[in-house]
Design a protein around this nucleic acid. Sequence first.
DNA 1: GCTCCTCGAGTTCT
DNA 2: CTCGAGGAGC
Length: 687
Amino acid sequence: MTLGPAQRAKALREQIVAHDYRYYVLDDPSVTDAEYDALMVELRQLEAAHPELISPDSPTQRVGGAPSPEFRPVSHRVGMLSLDNAFADEDVIAFDRRAHERLASDGVAAPVDLLYSAEPKLDGLAISLYYENGRLINAATRGDGTTGEDVTANIRTLRCVPLQLRSAEQTRVQVPRELEVRGEVFMPTEGFMRLNERAAAAGEKVFANPRNAAAGSLRQLDPRVTAARPLQAFFYAVGHWQGVAAPDSHHELLRWLAELGLRTCPESRMVRGVEGCLAYYRDLGARRAQLPYQIDGVVYKVDARSLQEQLGQVARAPRWAIAHKFPADEAITLLREVEFQVGRTGTLTPVARLEPVVVGGVTVSNATLHNMDEIERKDVRIGDTVIVRRAGDVIPEIVRVVLDRRPQHARRVHLPESCPVCGHAVVRVAGEAAARCSGGYSCSAQRKEALRHFVSRRALDVEGLGDKLIEQLVDAELVRSPADFWALSVAQLSELPRMGEKSAANVVTALHERRQTTLPRLLHALGIPGVGESTAAALAAHFGSLQRLMEADQAALQAVSDIGPVIAASLRAYFDDAGHRNELKRLRDPAGAALEWPEHEGRKPTAEGPLTGLTIVITGSFTGITREEATEALQKLGAKVAGSVSGKTSLLIAGEEAGSKLAKAQALGVRVVGEQELKTLLSGQPI
DNA sequence: GCTCCTCGAGTTCT
DNA sequence: CTCGAGGAGC
């Protein structure tokens, strides 16, 4: 007998979903791709002939609806935590010891060797999927952990993501009424390479690494584009569930997810104790290059759920899990040339020009060598083969030279005798690491940098005056000193290449808006050697007006805290210079730049508040507040906000992606809190 | 005079 | 982020 179209469609869908499950979750396909495709074709034809049979969770409906105009924000009902990082074996040992100590102090009996569930840490994007009665309702990115973006339409196009969880009849487990499951979306290395090859052939821009490619693919407005990208996903955690008994351990949770049709990573293993963790780390590290996807470390999770609950979480990371990162990626490349850059203060900085090489997922072609001492210490020569690393995973640095590969013709690096930009003599003060161009303001490099600094965000904060524009203005000799900026007309600006009347007008308006400034900003903008943002603020608070500051002698200057003989002399030298005094006059002149700032009596008392006496350091990023805003708010409450962690630090407030400061605070035993506590503090309550 | 701490300055890539 | 150096305290 023949089936009616409705039954046939249902049968086809069940077969396709079953094949998806075998293929993605069990990794054991039972049909060829051609057979699978034939089923899809038949279902499509059937649905085309009988549109009433189409259901939203039909496998043909992965790419559905019109492109969504935006990615709506979605708040996670349970915050998506991040993990603490371990970089060395000792960090893992300490993590295990802390877990033991905590359990012991809570009176919980734990085995000598805790059981851990270990899995690779994929280099992709964390996502959260929400299923109701087994049906996929929405999908969101991790975002900041509290709020992510709605990427449902794009996630639906991933064939390894079930639109419908396996039913109660198909599984040996209960299907939850509600399930919020978390995992990682990533692009397998091979798919990434093919995608880039095609993009390069088509003259489109290529992605720097699989992670960026995955992120870019998920951010497509048109789901059809996402559907064509080779994205995959593994699931490894549950944020929220209802209508089902939770598995007792992480490894059972993974099994349970797989049973529901959610793909889990085949590399996850149970390991015993620290030794087991470290052995797993080494094994995976050795096989890293052979894995079909990119990983940046491994994750250990205390397996038993009862112990996880006992351990709880701190700030924004659980105490029962840690990510053990692989060492920073290093690459080997050729040092082609060493050039010297001239900074605002005339400092000559040697920069290595490298044969471009991919390190840690980005292409690096420059690396700073800091100064001549550094070059000698590392014995770097032009033509050398060098090992490059991204320090703190961000700024490229040359780790060392591969001496075996030094060619005969390798050249030593010599400090130029004259400035490469202006030709003035280069001087090196005995005992100082830096070499300087003696050209001062007549050196166009120093002038450009000084002008750039003057209008930079933390100084006068003029928008629209970027590096390129300043370069043009200096080269065209339209601007020589900061006061000249305010003499620019729209007509003059619009004559410059790539500058329309509209942008020119915007720049003039932006300059005008910043005429009203503050004394600390102005003092910082001047770029007096040794006077940065914080010293400028101290000077402004102490003297109250530019006039009184300019009249102060060395002794009066040294009365300001943090000002010693060196900075006092630097200030005096600056204000004694006729050129500088003339520039200040032009800046203040109502017929010139006409800058204005409020003056006061000076010596503003430091704020007294509930936090007086505390030295607080802030690191990482927060959701509702920037670090700058938090700093200001804490200072208003009387706290001293410092830039680095030391023995004197009373508290470290760590946000997302906290770096070395967090590690240092932990090493020094400084108390660490998170954004929650920051908010509590700012509301005036103790923590 | 020594040591610790903080600030300033310079830097990369997307 | 990191390094160098000035400032402050012992």
